[in-house]
């Protein structure tokens, strides 16, 4: 059962800042520790910036759920942008298709518990992760 749920359109840097602020507030309310909040918000920031940079717009949804391991954050960022030709390569360190250092996705994977990336060319990209409260 979701404890709480937030869903938001991402079209601008301001939308990203608002979403990250809501995420931080949500996690603080559920009692996540500072390190986990920092990891979650940083990972979320990377994914939302990717939407802004590559797709122009998209949406984000995050819930705090509970299962047998306890409360966890479930975060999903989706866009209908150009898609990623080779998601596996995009997960490799130092890969970038936009001239940046391309550190985002591998970094996100290291910071969270379950990171999944699915993408279809011309259809869009969905990136999601979970992070259980420590």
């Amino acid at each position: 059962m979701p404890i709480t749920r937030k869903r938001q359109i991402i079209k601008s840097e301001t939308d990203i800042i608002v979403a990250l602020s809501k995420l931080r507030t949500m996690l603080e309310g559920v009692g996540f520790g500072e390190l986990q909040i920092s990891s979650s918000v940083t990972a979320a920031s990377e994914l939302l910036r990717n939407i802004e940079k590559y797709a122009g717009s998209g949406w984000v949804q995050f819930d705090v759920m509970t299962d047998s391991r306890g409360p966890y954050l479930e975060f999903t960022a989706t866009d209908h942008g150009p898609g990623i030709a080779d998601p596996e390569q995009a997960m490799a360190d130092h890969f970038s298709s936009s001239g940046t250092l391309g550190l985002g996705l591998p970094g996100v994977k290291r910071m969270v518990d379950d990171f999944t990336l699915s993408s279809d060319i011309g259809v869009g990209t969905t990136a999601s992760f979970k992070l259980w409260k420590g």
Partner: peptide
Amino acid sequence: VRPGVAASIVELGC
């Protein structure tokens, strides 16, 4: 640099 920020920077591989 705050502890969480420091940890995140390391995880990002900066």
